[in-house]
Structures are given as C-alpha cells and as structure tokens.
Design a protein around this nucleic acid. Structure first.
Length: 116
RNA sequence: CGAGUAAGCUGAGCGGACGCGGCGCGGAGACCCAAAAGGCCCGCGCUGAGGAAAGUCCGGGCUUCACAGGGCAGGGUGCCGGCUAACGGCCGGUGAGAGUGAUCUUAAGGAAAGUGCCACAGAAACAAACCGCCUAAGCGCGCAAGCGCCGGCAAGGAUGGAACGGUGCGGUAAGAGCGCACCAGCGGCCGGGUGACCGGCCGGCUAGGUAAACCCCACCCGAAGCAAGGCCAAAUGCAGGCGCACAGUGCUGCCCGUCCUGCCUGCAUAAAAGGGCCGCAGGAGGCGGCUGGCAACAGCCGCACCAGAUAGAUGUCCGUUCACGACAGAACCCGGCUUACAGGCUUGGCUCGGCUU
RNA sequence: GCCGGAGUAGCUCAACUGGCAGAGCAGCUGAUUUGUAAUCAGCAGGUUGCGGGUUCAAGUCCCAUCUCCGGCU
C-alpha cells in the first residue's frame, strides 16, 4: 500500500488521465500518465472484473502496488499515473512487474530529475 | 479387520525485515481548501476478513414514504405438534417410498364444487361394445334339430401408462358385488393420541389419472432500500402550472376511501468546487458454566469488547517445520437456505459382514 | 446494493394450449457443365447449458446450478 499522498483517489483525476494523458503498454498492464498541478507522484490502479473474482483481483492489485512502492523513486513527481491491469498480470511476479515499470518509465521520456 | 451410516470440529504454524487500514496518545509543517469540518506528514502502543465473507433464494431489524385503511387482481406457503423476532428455516413425530440394516428421502391439503387435458393406439379415456359369450323368457318360421327377430352380458381377446376394484368359491342361458370370504378403497361408530394418525367393529358394495393445468380451501404478504435517511457549510436563481380545483403523498396494476401541504413541478443540482459528519458496529452478538426440555430452544450467572474502509486496508522478501496449503475477501446489521472446498481431527455413537475366544 | 433477459445442428433462428425437435445458410454425395459458380435430387449432423423432480410423456411445468448479455442507483 502506498501512502495517502501518493494515491490517486478521485474519479475526475482518473478521467483526466485517461482523456488527456499518454499511454504505454506492456504484457501485464497499461501505464497512463499526465502532468498534474501538484508536485507529487500520484498513482491509481484499475483492475476490471475481466481479471477474475474478488480474490484474484485483489492479488493483482496488491502485486502492482507493491511493485510501484518499491520503484517509487523511478517515477517523476508532478505527474499522475494510472496502471490498468491486463489479463497477463495474473501470471507476473512482483520482480517482473518492477522490471516492466522501470522499462516503461524509461521509454516515457520523463525522468525523476526533470521536475523534482 | 473390512464396508457403511450419523453427528460435530478445523480450514497451516513459528521467527525476522519493509509496508497498509482503524483506534488511542504525543508531535509537526503553516501544505490542500473561500471557510468550517476534514485531509495530508512523523513517532509509539493496541488491533485488523470467512465457514462459507459467495449466490442473492427466503425471513427480520433499521430508515423514509401517510404509522400502513378497504376491495379486486397478483404473489407465496401447504401432513401434525413445537421452537423462533420472523421464515419457504430448525427440532420432534405421522403417513408413503428406498435399503439386509444403522439410516436416508419426501411441495405430503382438496379430484363426490366446477372447468380443461389424457397425443398415438383402441369399440370406448367417464360411461363405451370391435371381436366375443348367450338364446332362458317373448315373437315368427319349421315335424324336429335349428334359424331369424326382439334382446341380454361385460367373463375372455385386442389397444394403452391407465379400461370402471383384485383373488377364490358359489350362482347363471351366458354373465355381473348378483351372493359370500379375504385384501385394497369409501362411509359411520367405539377406543387411544394435543394432533397428523393408529387399532377394532359395523355398513353399503365402488368412486380412473392429472391440481409442480386452471381452480377450491386455509394461512401469510404495503412499497422501496444505508447510493435508505438525517445534519453542517456554501448557493437560493430561472421557466412553467393552479385556483375549490389541481398537484403530490415512491413503482406489480386498478378502483374506492382518507390524511397532509398551500403552493406545486421542472432545471441549475448532485458523479459540482478535493465537500465533511452522523447512520457505522455493544449485537434477537460471542465464549464458558448451571437449570428446564427427547430436541430445536429458553432462562439465569460470569467473562471479554472482537474489522469498520469510501479508488476501498492483510502484501513483498528472508529463515524454518509439516500432511507442501482447497474454496475463497467484510462494505448497514442479523437469522436461515443453497452452492464451492486440499486435507486433518473427534465421538465409553450405531449398523452389516468376516475371523478369533 | 437492486432488477431483468437469453442459452436448441458448425452459424442465424423456429417449435401455439406438454404429444415423433424443424427451417435457411454452411457441409458431404450424385446429376448438369470442357471446368467452376448457380440450379436440381439426396444424405448426414442434437446429452435442447448442466443436475434433480412432477407427469404415461418435459425444449415446454417446478427446484437448484453454470455461463453470457443488459438495465437502475
């Protein structure tokens, strides 16, 4: 679990990221991001019912959150992010998710130092 | 020893590191916000999913609508007694069915209130005569045997899931509950039981199936749901309609009756600006003991307080043990039902079979 | 949280009050054609999602369950 400050919580924030942000995808998830007014890293998660029943969805979300927590330094502050789990996320481990996050953030073109 | 049957319990453990929700205590920036409330941050302590949390199939509590009115429709339940806040649940019994048995299953009221249906086959599917059996009585013909007419019968055959009680004896022209005995079913009386029902005696001899077809009878059901609903802060405008009629009074429909308001309806306005708080977890609750009861359950006493989120908390890593871990995640609460489930455990339980004494 | 609808041949759909599960397309075989298409004739293809029950008889009625689709808040 992330701290409250690092969470994306409002429905409108999600919508803003979906509509006006950029999206990158890999096997396990889609990463959407968008510059925000505040200077913090805020991440939201989306796991649809397509992934399975409540227990399975919880497991996927927790693995994603743990991976994000461990890689929090790699995220550029001043941006809002949303991770949308895909069907492949069920087979991933936390370690493999961390690698995919790092890879996607590198290709995103924004680095932690630019807006720290 | 083997096979079975019944009731119940459990649902990986221990240690460490990094994290998260809630509560309590302490602290801090002057960060979010128009402001209040609240949020964000740091430290410590305590605490943090299930037996099904699931499906949403029933029943309640709670809240609002008018403290919930009447009728018709509509829906549900359906052997008896009890338990319960209530139930379509549970317990105990009755009948029926299955099993060698322990035991299990059971929507199990009414078919002489009425209607419908019973395909094909068959003469006929609720009142029938195709094949068949008979020719006693009556009439005609004939010397007679006999033939014909008028008829009688439902035993046998055939069809069907089902054919107007079954078996046997008597009876008859042939037959038939026509008579008798037993069995099944029906009605009455007597006895037992709170009752479903059971037992006995007597009577008249006969009534097809289907109500998970319509229906009849008995009993029950107002509706919507915590995004219910209430409070705080901010904002209070525009458009339309009505005057003794109109509008609303919440959704399974219609009608009647009646209450309330004077204004009502729509939009801005509810997924708004980061809105917030209550509802919200002390309960028909849990654990232990005693008493009453065959039991479900009830009463009394004692003990502890045991999730409460709102993008929604249990995860990751390391070590270790073993039978290598199933189904599965609270969202207002509770009682049931149903469904899913790796494995493990308990019972001075019960039944059947084999062997030994 | 609440409430609806559907499941039938490989595909798209029928089957009224329970009474032999059917049609079109697709498939296969044959005919026609030099050959193909079209056309004609014929054939095969079904645990009616799954499991129970009621009934003489169930796609149809009742109960339970699975999957999919949709709606309201």
């Amino acid at each position: 679990m992330l701290k409250q400050a690092n969470r994306l919580r409002r429905r409108q924030d999600f919508r803003r990221v979906y509509q006006r942000g950029k999206a990158l995808k890999c096997r396990a998830f889609v990463l959407c991001f968008r510059p925000a007014a505040r200077g913090a890293v805020r991440v939201g998660f989306s796991v649809s019912k397509k992934l399975g029943k409540a227990v399975e969805r919880n497991r996927v979300r927790r693995k994603l959150r743990e991976a994000v927590r461990l890689e929090l330094a790699a995220f550029a502050s001043g941006y809002d992010y949303v991770l949308i789990a895909r069907l492949g996320a069920k087979e991933e481990t936390v370690e493999s998710l961390r690698r995919q996050i790092k890879k996607l953030l590198k290709t995103s073109g924004i680095s932690p130092r630019t807006r720290a």
